[in-house]
C-alpha cells in the first residue's frame, strides 16, 4: 500500500508548552483516518506542520515517500483548516480560479467541484455574502479542485447549524465512499465514528493510539437486556459462561459484557427456555466515545 504521509517524532514547542510531543504515525492510501483528541490536544498544530504553515521544533515528516518537497506535495493535497479562508471581495468562482492558478489545475474543474458541494447557483456571488455553512462547503470544493490524493479536514463542522453539519457530513461520506484517502481531525466522536476506518488518538500532544477503529478496544461487545423477571435474569447471567460480568445501568437495563463472541439469538433462546421473557435485547460494541473516554482516562 502506498504511504501518503509519514510523521517521525514530530514535535512542536511554543515556549515552555509542548503542543505536539514526538508524534509518529503513517497515513496509507485508501483509508479514512480520524485524528481524535480534546480541544487543545495538538490536532491543528500537527496538521499545521505537515501543511507548511507551522515550523516543527524537531522531528520530520515526509509526503509521498519524500518524492517531492512539501509545497510541491501540497499541490496534490486538498486541505481545509479551521475556518474557511478566502478573499472576501472575490466571487466563489474567482476564489477558486486563484486556487487553480496556485495548484496548476484547469478552470474546467471549478464547475465540477461546485456541483459536488451544491454551490453552483451562487458561484458569481461574493464570498463575503455567504453563510458559514456555504463558506465551509466552498472550502471543501476548493480542497477537491485538484482531485487530491488525500483530503485533510480540520473540524469541518465547527460552528455550523444542524443542517449545515448534516450537509457537510453527507459530502464527506460521499467522498469517502468514492475511495478517497481522508484525514479528519475532530473532537466530535460520532462524526469520526461514522466515516473513519482508522483513528489516531492524541492527548496533550502525545499519541495514545493509532490503528483501525475496530481494534481500538478489542472486546467482543455487550448485550443490553431488560426483563420483568429481573432477578432470574441476573442469576442466569451470573452462571452463563459467555458473560464476563454484568452491570446494572439506569432504567432497569442490564449491561452484560461478553467474554467471548456470542450471538444475540442464542441468549434470547436460552432466556426463553428458562422462562425469562426479555422486553429489550440489543447487542452492540462500545461507541467510540466510550472507548475514547476509557483510553484517555487510563493514561
Amino acid at each position: 500500500m502506498k504511504t501518503i504521509l509519514k510523521l517521525r517524532e514530530l514535535t512542536k514547542k511554543f515556549g515552555s508548552l509542548t503542543a505536539v510531543d514526538a508524534l509518529t504515525f503513517n497515513i496509507q492510501k485508501g483509508n479514512v483516518y480520524g485524528i481524535l483528541g480534546p480541544n487543545g490536544s495538538g490536532k491543528s498544530t500537527t496538521l499545521g506542520m505537515v501543511l507548511n504553515v507551522v515550523n516543527p521544533s524537531s522531528g520530520s515528516f515526509e509526503w509521498f515517500d519524500g518524492e517531492m518537497n512539501t509545497h510541491e506535495a501540497l499541490k496534490k493535497v486538498g486541505a481545509i483548516i479551521e475556518s474557511p479562508n478566502f478573499y472576501p471581495s472575490m466571487s466563489a468562482e474567482d476564489n477558486l480560479k486563484l486556487v487553480c492558478k496556485i495548484k496548476g489545475v484547469e478552470y474546467s474543474r471549478i464547475d465540477v467541484v461546485l456541483e459536488i458541494v451544491n454551490l453552483h447557483d451562487r458561484k458569481k456571488d461574493h464570498f463575503s455574502s455567504y453563510s458559514l455553512g456555504m463558506k465551509q462547503r466552498l472550502a471543501i470544493a476548493s480542497a477537491l479542485l485538484n482531485d487530491p490524493e488525500i483530503l485533510i479536514l480540520d473540524e469541518p463542522t465547527n460552528g455550523l447549524d444542524p443542517q449545515g453539519i448534516h450537509q457537510i457530513r453527507e459530502i464527506i461520506k460521499r467522498i469517502a465512499a468514492e475511495g478517497m484517502t481522508i484525514l479528519l481531525a475532530s473532537h466530535l466522536l460520532d462524526e469520526v465514528e461514522k466515516v473513519c476506518s482508522h483513528v489516531v488518538v492524541i492527548r496533550n500532544g502525545k499519541k495514545l493510539y493509532s490503528g483501525p477503529v475496530d481494534e481500538l478496544n478489542a472486546t467482543h461487545g455487550f448485550f443490553e437486556l431488560k426483563s420483568e423477571h429481573k432477578d432470574e435474569l441476573k442469576s442466569f447471567l451470573e452462571t452463563h459462561s459467555a458473560i464476563e460480568r454484568y452491570d446494572e445501568a439506569d432504567n432497569d437495563l442490564i449491561k452484560a459484557i461478553l467474554a467471548q463472541p456470542y450471538e444475540a439469538k442464542l441468549i434470547n433462546k436460552e432466556c426463553f427456555e428458562k422462562g425469562i421473557l426479555l422486553t429489550h435485547l440489543v447487542k452492540r460494541k462500545e461507541t467510540l466515545e466510550e472507548q475514547f473516554l476509557k483510553l484517555t482516562k487510563n493514561q
Binding site: 501543511l51 504553515v53 493535497v77 483548516i81 475556518s83 478566502f86 496556485i102 495548484k103
Partner: peptide, 12 residues
C-alpha cells in the same frame, strides 16, 4: 483574511 495561510496550504 488568513488567505496567506490558505495560499501556503494550497501549495504556494
Amino acid at each position: 483574511n488568513r488567505t496567506l495561510k490558505q495560499n501556503l496550504i494550497d501549495g504556494l
